[in-house]
Structures are given as C-alpha cells and as structure tokens.
Computed example of a mutant assay.
Amino acid sequence: MTKLDFSAINKSAANSFNEQRNIIKKIGRGETVLCPTCQQPFKLSVSLLGKSGLSCEKGCTNITLELEL
C-alpha cells in the first residue's frame, strides 16, 4: 500500500490561512490593505444576516468571514 504525502498541500493551505488572517488583523487595526491582484483597497462588509467578508472593488479577491452570535 502506498502512503499519500499531503505535506505540500497542508503547507500551502496553512500559508494561505496565515496570509488571510494577517490581512484581517491589519484591517481590524484600521490599516489600508491593497488587493495583491488589482491593487484596490479591501472593503469590509459585516452583516449578521447575510454574507460578511473582505473584498476588493473588482471582486478578484474575496475572504468570507464566519460570525458567531
């Protein structure tokens, strides 16, 4: 039986998570963060009933937030 090596996938997912977490922290501190693709500032949208998250004007980057009541 062959062992599957998921270390590269796990490392990529961890890096992505950390990058998104750092963007959220910066926006939480009031800093302006630019989208790496289009260089437009991210906008924060918070709604208890609908979709919450960060996105740029063009929509090329979206980070969905899960809110708990």
Score class of each variant (00 low, 15 high):
4 L>V: 12
56 C>W: 04
40 Q>D: 13
35 C>S: 05
18 N>K: 08
1 M>F: 11
67 L>D: 00
42 F>A: 02
8 A>Y: 04
58 K>C: 15
16 S>R: 09
34 L>F: 07
30 G>H: 03
26 K>A: 13
34 L>A: 06
49 L>E: 02
20 Q>Y: 07
30 G>T: 01
14 A>R: 10
35 C>A: 05
64 T>L: 14
10 N>W: 00
20 Q>G: 05
36 P>Y: 06
67 L>N: 00
36 P>L: 11
16 S>D: 10
26 K>S: 11
69 L>H: 05
69 L>R: 09
26 K>R: 14
44 L>R: 01
11 K>L: 12
5 D>E: 03
38 C>L: 11
14 A>P: 02
8 A>T: 07
69 L>F: 07
51 K>M: 04
2 T>K: 15
12 S>E: 12
8 A>K: 14
31 E>T: 01
19 E>V: 04
27 I>L: 12
58 K>I: 09
5 D>K: 03
34 L>S: 06
39 Q>G: 04
43 K>A: 12
62 N>Y: 07
43 K>T: 14
4 L>A: 08
6 F>L: 15
33 V>E: 09
7 S>P: 02
31 E>Q: 07
56 C>Q: 04
8 A>C: 05
39 Q>W: 02
19 E>M: 14
38 C>Y: 03
48 L>C: 01
4 L>D: 10
23 I>K: 09
4 L>S: 10
60 C>P: 14
43 K>L: 09
44 L>S: 03
60 C>L: 07
31 E>W: 05
26 K>E: 13
24 I>R: 02
17 F>G: 04
31 E>K: 06
63 I>E: 03
54 L>D: 01
24 I>E: 04
56 C>G: 08
42 F>E: 01
29 R>Y: 07
67 L>K: 00
12 S>P: 02
63 I>V: 15
44 L>A: 06
31 E>Y: 03
65 L>K: 01
